[in-house]
Design a binder for these strands. Structure first.
Lengths: 201, 201
DNA sequence: CGGTGAATCTGACAGATGTCATGGGCCGCC
DNA sequence: GGCGGCCCATGACATCTGTCAGATTCACCG
């Protein structure tokens, strides 16, 4: 029996996934977490074999939680289960020690199968997404460029961004301009959109 | 037995919801749709009592589909099931004839209960969200301001927006400036964010 | 030890954005 | 019939954005 922990911020989605997996004779959902920062404690308490992690969760995002699990050296396999199959997400997922990556557009059998194969020590990733991750999974930005772009998603002015990151306005303009150039964007809003769509933020 | 049709673009989420609802003795999932523009045909084919509609679907968004169902005069109840409880979404949902509005953060029992009560002719809406919808559900924008803001979400320049909407650049600046003023935004990106967060786009 | 890249900054300048006034046409409502 | 609001446009102007050059410091690598 494969013991599974579900981490997703949406209650209904968690319960629905638990219901779906309950049909599998060899899979048992032993716990749930609604927030990223609840996962480690839940893993310690429930001793799952596999953890299903959404990415966007309050408290701590799923990719960072995967890093935490990996760093803690726990004998638990991680499957990222997310809405968007973004190459940057997959790239970070694999780098953080995740063994599987499934999008919520998959079929139920694909999820169950992913859980089994990951439990058996295999890696489960959609082939097309893996290819995409290899070509454009890695973020082209420096750490500071990413910081500046992330704050720019709020839609504030150069002065707002500078204030938030304790930088001068000129420096912020330089970073934004550089980031825009790296993705061929003509405005920072366009750069933000490209970065988000690729999972680089 | 209450017959239910599920419309959500994510396969796994649909199957999981179907699994969850299968535990209810008085509810039967009789059909599914993955795209907004598949729902009317699916309703004609499966004759559901209740339709569960996600909002963001390819082909046609759920709120517009709710309008279509209402306009077609079909004896079917609509429950909107969505990720974000945005007052603008609720406002539009109620205006389009939906009888229920449930967010994916609800509990499973709340969904099943909503389906039963909607089927019994009641309206099911979270009270706090209903209050929020009354105060800021209605979009403050004119139709053209909304058009301009929506195109602005792509992050293009004034010239891009003007070209796409067949307007002059000056007109676009006027509409953007007016829309920004209505929500107290200092940049168009901020206005877009406020509009999206309130469900006005 | 030297070269390279990143982080950070300043300054100048061109182009884009946003504000504001003004005006015409159309439509709905009183 | 008049008024108000929306759609659309132009023009002037202030401010902001983005580009680019040049500079310093620090860490890392060959």
């Amino acid at each position: 029996m494969i013991r599974v922990l579900l981490a997703d911020d949406q209650h209904l989605v968690r319960q629905a996934m638990a219901a779906l997996l309950s049909f599998e004779a060899d899979i048992e959902v032993v716990g749930e977490a609604a927030r990223g920062d609840e996962v480690l404690a839940a893993v310690a308490e429930c001793s799952p074999d596999v953890v299903l992690l959404d990415i966007e969760m309050p408290g701590r995002d799923g990719l960072t939680v995967a890093e935490d699990l990996h760093a803690a050296g726990l004998a638990v396999k991680v499957v990222i289960l997310t809405t968007f199959g973004r190459p940057g997400y997959l790239h970070r997922a694999l780098a953080s020690g995740a063994s599987g990556f499934v999008v919520k557009d998959a079929r139920a059998e694909e999820l169950a199968d992913a859980i089994r194969r990951v439990h058996a020590g295999q890696r489960v990733v959609d082939r097309a997404l893996a290819a995409s991750s290899r070509t454009r999974g890695a973020s082209p930005f420096t750490a500071r460029e990413r910081d500046v772009l992330r704050v720019a998603t709020d839609g504030g002015t150069i002065a707002d961004i500078a204030r938030e990151l304790f930088l001068s306005e000129g420096t912020v303009r330089n970073y934004l301009s550089s980031a825009m150039g790296k993705v061929g964007a003509r405005t920072r809003a366009e750069a933000v959109r490209v970065a988000e769509n690729n999972g680089w933020l």
